[in-house]
Each structure stands twice: as structure tokens, then as C-alpha cells.
Computed example of a mutant assay.
Amino acid sequence: MSEKQIWLVTGAGRGMGTDIAKAALAAGHTVVATGRSIERVAGAVGDHDDLLVVPLDVTDTTSVRAAIDTTVSRLGRIDVVVNNAGNFKAGFFEEITPDDFRAQVETVLFGSVNVVRAVLPVMRSQRSGLLVQISSTAGINGGEFLTAYAAAKFGVEGWFESLAPEVAPFGIRTLLVEPGFFRTELLTPESTDFARSTISDYAQRTDETVAQWQSMNGKQGGDPAKLAAALLQLVGQDPKVTRWPAGADAVGTFEQKAASLLADADAHRELSSHLDHDDT
């Protein structure tokens, strides 16, 4: 993928989105950097001759459609879409309000769905394209305090894995990126919303868990700029890759999950293998 391409990046105003936009520009591509605030996006990515900044709110289908239409009218095509926009609503399940739980899924899952639904007709007409979905190791392995976030990310994983064979006949590829812990703004107050402690049974664990998450902010091991550079290298070198654990901790999560699934498969193999009708 050495030829100049049109990259559209959502959530480019901060975090990985900013670094991916910069890496794509550095690689010689044209970048459409999007976000809810074009001033923030422009300030984060900086000036560049090959940069187009466009407003896009992934939860607003009208905004999404307008961003795609603007890109095609100005640049003629879209070669790569990076679905990166997201947020983090953390807390024990009973303490996350139903509205917040739905809002988490709305942004992380349906926001990405909105973007892909709008761009697929463009890529089908081109008979080419790459859809990059920034997921998370929380979409591979759930954990306490992550019920809403993991539900959204697990949904992303299942949707994207199922989408891949549907669009492959049109020359459209998909890539799931599952980062571990990277030093982005995800744990800042702007991106993270901790559920209010309302149930005494959870109170101590809530206080301890929130303090633990907050103490990690700015100390995560992963470098998002290195992830962005590696992503550009990966998609340029390996056209067959469909899932990428990003970070040493992500590789460990994959290995742990694979071992756990194999252990589950073996645990009651005899019982599980004799559930067919007797006449089959």
C-alpha cells in the first residue's frame, strides 16, 4: 500500500486518532481528520497540505453522511477508514445507569456501525477499500468494572468478524486492532465517566477500583505514536492480516484467552460431544 491514498480517521482530535492521522500524513497519504470539534482536530493534527479537517459525530447519522459526502466530493474516493472514536464508561454493572450503558454501546458500537454503513457504498463502487476498527483487549477478555465497555467492544468484534466475508468479494478488507494499555486520553476526565457509587455493597471496591484506574492515567506502557507507525507498516506489508493485538500486554491477553477457551473445550468434552439426536 505504498501509493498515495485517502485516509479518513474518526476521533482524530486526541489520542490514537491524532497519532494515526499524523502517521498516515507522514507516510505520504491524504488524511481526512474528523471529530466533533474541528478546532480541536486541527489543533491536534497540525497544518499539512494533504490534510482535510471535517466535522463528524459518530452518533449522528446525518453528520456521518455529510462527512462522507464532503470527502468524496472533495477528494473523489476513500481508501482507508479508521474507526477510532470512543469513550469509556466504567463501573460495576448495578451502578451503571441504563442510560449510560446504552450510551456506551451507542458510541463505541453503533458509532462505528454508522460510519461503515455510510462508507461501504463508496468502497463497493470502487471495488476496493480497507476498514480499520480500533477495538480493545476488552473485546477479547472482559473484566470487572468493564461491563458496558466490554459489551460494546465484544459487539464490535463480532460485528466486524462477521462483516469481513460479506465485503471481501468487493475488494474490501477489514482489520481489527486490539490495543492493550496505551498512554492516551482514554482515562482522563474528558473521556472516562465513572459510575456514581450508589450501593453500599460495592462502595469499598468502587473507591479502590476508581483510584486504581485514575492512578494509571499517564502511566500506561504503550506509546500511541509507535502503534500508529506500526499500523501503517502492517497494513502496507501484510494484506491478509485481519486481527492485530497491539502491544505486548495485548499479545498476552490473546494467549491467555486462547488457553482459557481450549481448557473450556476440554473440560467437558465427553458430555458436550453426545448431544446429537440418537437418529443422527
Results as ranks from 00 to 15, higher is better:
P239G: 10
R127H: 14
S197D: 12
K22N: 05
V80C: 02
R77W: 01
F181S: 14
G139R: 02
Q5V: 04
S112A: 14
A265V: 10
A24P: 05
G247N: 05
H277E: 13
L187C: 01
Q133H: 11
F101I: 09
V54R: 00
S162G: 14
K22R: 12
S162T: 12
K89S: 11
T97Y: 00
F170T: 05
T18W: 00
Q133P: 08
L176W: 02
A259E: 13
N84F: 07
A21I: 04
D276I: 08
V9K: 00
G17W: 07
G158M: 07
M1R: 11
I134Q: 01
D207F: 10
Q126N: 06
P169N: 07
A152S: 12
L8F: 01
A103F: 10
W159M: 15
A246K: 00
S125W: 03
K22G: 02
L261A: 12
V58E: 00
V82S: 04
T107L: 15
R196G: 12
S2P: 02
F194K: 03
L131Q: 04
P165I: 02
N83Q: 09
A225Y: 05
R117P: 03
G17C: 11
T206Q: 10
L163H: 01
M1G: 13
V177E: 02
R205M: 12
V122T: 10
G129D: 00
L234Q: 12
G91E: 01
G221F: 08
A33S: 11
R36A: 07
R196E: 15
Q212S: 15
Q220C: 11
T280M: 13
A211S: 11
A21C: 07
A118K: 01
K22S: 04
R40G: 13
S272C: 10
A229W: 09
V80T: 06
L52N: 05
D50Q: 15
D47S: 15
G43W: 10
L52F: 08
T34N: 07
D50T: 11
A150P: 03
H268A: 09
G17V: 11
V105T: 11
T97W: 00
P98F: 03
